[in-house]
Design a protein around this nucleic acid. Structure first.
Lengths: 114, 114
DNA sequence: TTCATATATTTAAGTAACTTATATATTGCA
DNA sequence: TGCAATATATAAGTTACTTAAATATATGAA
């Protein structure tokens, strides 16, 4: 598992990107998918996930549909139009972030300002 | 500028990796180097940097040498032996983190579990 | 049948890595 | 003379999380 400090700020972007790729998803499904995609390196706790989803819904980024499955409630989330543009921004920002981190952990050996 | 939420947890690793690459550095120099390497995308504030350096010194990860330059004090930091192994772990963890993020922002199109 | 595990969502309380603000002091350029 | 750059330090505040506790059904193993 990667330290939670490192992962912290990226959870919202991860959730939004998964919803973009997979259409609608419910909370539990999202945590499973994150584990799968990251080979268990990133785990989304429920205490983090559900407040994020509720907040994004409140902000108009997501909408919900509640359905009954095996006598259990499932709350499906999907992106609004606003959500689509929020994801685009967030993913762009994350790509820049990754690039910046790579410049630090894999520095160009010859690159040196006098 | 990348949002501070995204950057937060990675500052310590960034500082340590820069010290590994550049030998000894002083605080102000570190903030400049981070800006340079990330094309201004990541800025280390002094309120973040100095407490990180002090804590790492206290933990025996870094040692200091204070020197006088132009009547200004410069506090140079460098890695201890312990620091060298801490950096190795932290950088390894960050590479895994980057890989996990890439699996999310650049998913394999054909990859789908039934 | 009974117990653990997986499924599924919710929210309150606590932590800590930061940001923001403030303080101090010198150099150098316009 | 006055601002920007250089250089370090720390107190106070924010907030995105973690941890913990609550609730409830389905399913397979013992």
């Amino acid at each position: 598992m990667i330290s939670t400090d490192l992962i912290k700020g990226s959870l919202k972007t991860i959730v939004l990107k998964l919803l973009k790729e997979n259409g609608r998803m419910y909370g539990y499904e999202i945590t499973r998918k994150v584990e799968e995609l990251t080979a268990g390196q990133i785990k989304l706790t429920y205490g983090a996930l559900y407040p994020i989803l509720h907040k994004l819904e409140y902000e108009g980024v997501l909408v919900t549909e509640s359905e009954n499955y095996n006598n259990r409630i499932r709350v499906y989330y999907s992106l609004t139009d606003k959500g689509e543009s929020v994801v685009a921004e967030k993913v762009k920002e994350m790509r820049q972030f990754i690039e910046s981190l790579q410049n630090i952990v894999n520095p160009q050996p010859g690159f040196n300002h006098a």
